[in-house]
């Protein structure tokens, strides 16, 4: 049971798929136009992830190694079809706004990666909780990003707009406030401005519309990753091991199909270290006899002295 709780925490905080591992960027950018969309997408991904982890873990001894990726894909695709049909029936509004991204959960890196790295090697219960944990982390991330984009871009939170929520773009608000202060026509404009602020008459304010459109998603993600880089740099300055925090799929995609995003999830440090180890071993093996030969050479040279040039050459 302990490992299950640990799996939950791992997925939500330590190895959050979006903020730490930066996987599954496609749905993150596309779906977070509002908090509700982010929440819905996150929850459906969580369901698929948890169930697929469970099933794959149950079948891990049965599926032969050569066909494991296609079989994982089929299992995930079936689950996605089921979840999609359920959503279409019970939450048609959400289904309509998410559109094809529900079907695209199939090719979400997180699910296949988790299946390959964790579920295929561990028992059913930890796998299930791992899936739930990762899914919850993903949901949290999506909802947060969606809420931010909606708040600044659409002047609403979870669909609520108007006087109930001070949801508008703060810079515009401040400018209007200052404008009202210096507007000579209105008396005690400052008070009026503050009053407007607190009663929520934002007729003249407009939100940063671009945030809920396509380009805004890129900008939000860029800022998020930049913040993550700052945290990573600070952590490394203090000497902490920050290697788990990736910065997106910026690695050379040429070897992606060999290592795959999944390998990163396994034990990223180990695989990288393994590869460098292998190269190092091959090279140190090569160096050892070379060193012995060169040592022998220098001995011969010193012994022979400057006169025996030819004998030194023969020894080579």
């Amino acid at each position: 049971m302990k490992s299950c709780i640990e799996r939950l925490f791992n997925g939500i905080i330590k190895e959050n798929p979006t903020f730490v591992l930066t996987l599954g960027m496609c749905p993150t950018l596309a779906v977070t136009t509002s908090a509700i969309n982010g929440l819905g997408m996150g929850l459906s991904t969580m369901v698929v992830l948890a169930l697929s982890n469970l099933i794959i873990s149950a079948l891990r001894k049965v599926i032969p190694d050569k066909v494991r990726i296609p079989s994982y894909i089929v299992i995930v695709a079936s689950l996605v079809t089921v979840v999609g049909l359920l959503m279409e029936a019970y939450v048609p509004g959400l289904y309509a706004s998410l559109g094809i991204y529900i079907d695209l959960i199939v090719v979400n890196c997180i699910i296949l990666g988790r299946a390959e790295s964790y579920a295929s090697k561990n028992k059913m219960l930890p796998s299930l909780f791992d899936g739930i944990g990762m899914g919850l982390g993903f949901t949290f991330a999506l909802t947060l990003i969606g809420a931010v984009r909606e708040f600044f871009g659409n002047a609403s939170i979870f669909g609520l707009t108007g006087p109930k929520v001070y949801g508008t773009s703060i810079p515009v608000l401040l400018v209007e406030l200052v404008n009202k202060i210096f507007n000579p026509d209105s008396s005690s404009a400052f008070v009026r401005g503050l009053g407007d602020f607190f009663t929520g008459e934002f007729a003249s304010f407009s939100p940063i519309g671009i945030l809920v459109m396509a380009p805004g998603a890129f900008f939000v993600l860029a800022i998020l990753t930049a913040i993550q880089n700052v945290i990573k740099a600070k952590g490394e300055a203090k000497g902490k091991d920050m290697s788990k925090i990736q910065s997106g799929c910026s690695s050379d995609c040429m070897s992606c199909h060999e290592s795959g995003c999944s390998r990163r999830l396994v034990e990223p440090e180990k695989t990288e270290a393994k590869k460098t180890e292998e190269v190092k071993e091959a090279v140190t093996e090569a160096e050892k006899p070379a060193e012995e030969v060169s040592e022998a050479k220098t001995e011969t040279v010193e012994a022979a002295g400057t006169q025996d040039v030819k004998s030194g050459k023969e020894d080579e």
């Binding site: 990753t225 930049a226 880089n229 740099a233 910065s247």
Partner: peptide
């Protein structure tokens, strides 16, 4: 520095 790599 924070923007090097993916963010930019």
């Amino acid at each position: 520095k924070p923007f090097r790599g993916m963010p930019i």
